[in-house]
Amino acid sequence: MTTPAITVTHLTRRFGDFVAVDDVSFDVQQGEIFGFLGANGAGKSTTIRMLCGLLRPTSGTATVGGVDVGRDPEAVKLRIGYMSQKFSLYEALTVDQNIRFFGGVYGLEGERFARRRAFALDMAGLVGREKSLTRELAGGWRQRLALGCAILHEPPIVFLDEPTGGVDPVSRRQFWRLIDHLSQQGTTVLVTTHYLDEAEHCHRIAVMNAGKLAALGTTRELKQVFEGRPIMEVQAPSAVVAMRALDAMPEVEKTSLFGTAVHAVLRSHQTTAERVTRQLLTAGVVATSVMPVEPSLEDVFLDLVERTSA
């Protein structure tokens, strides 16, 4: 196995008394797509900003592309691309002027710049629209252009902080195709997201909660927390009433709302769907359907957040 692209050991960051990132350790392999999940304020952006050399760790170390971030943040910057959570292009400039600016500050010149410019335009699907003002572009194009500008200098490691926030599903899919493509070419991608369907694209996922690393692994590994705790999906005319009835049953560990349905986590495989249906009837709830389902990432996420917050 090759050396990891990113190694994080006991990384901690405080803001005054508040611990935004609390003793976090993990590795990211080269070419891996590493997903970062967590509620608002969990500390994802703070972690990324430390890895990028934008913010000094309070304690702990992080090595990115072989360079110690705390010791030489400037050297790290040459090896990585970063797309910040806030929208990060100059809206008053045209597509081409943005590319030129970022090419300029990254010191790209001549033939190399021309090649990378063509690449960024092509990747964003903006060939022929070089003169459009960036503020007039639709969200999906802007996001792809921002990615293009962030990786103009061909960094081996890329950090993307909520790159698909506020973008329509089709554009999100296109964006993820680009991420997959980067990873296939050997680029390491660390990406945060609130969309759990996107997380399924990641090779491995880290879930952060209140500054701590709550779980880490492949999707399959993460779903193993539901080993011996089957999930029953219940549809009923009133999900809220059904939820209350389910919560009252001793066989049910906990419930959560999934759209119009309720997911009930059971304490053992002994409890069948028929039994749940019967119990619900006794409680006066007529369920339209009760059936066992595979745990989704959302189940995992909610479960983790609940347990680590308790």
């Binding site: 990028c52 934008l54 970063y82 806030k86 990060s88 500050v105």
Partner: peptide, 13 residues
């Protein structure tokens, strides 16, 4: 405010 500062700070400048 717009976050472009962070983007520029990432560049080796």
């Amino acid at each position: 405010e717009r976050g472009t500062m962070e983007q520029v700070r990432m560049a080796p400048i």
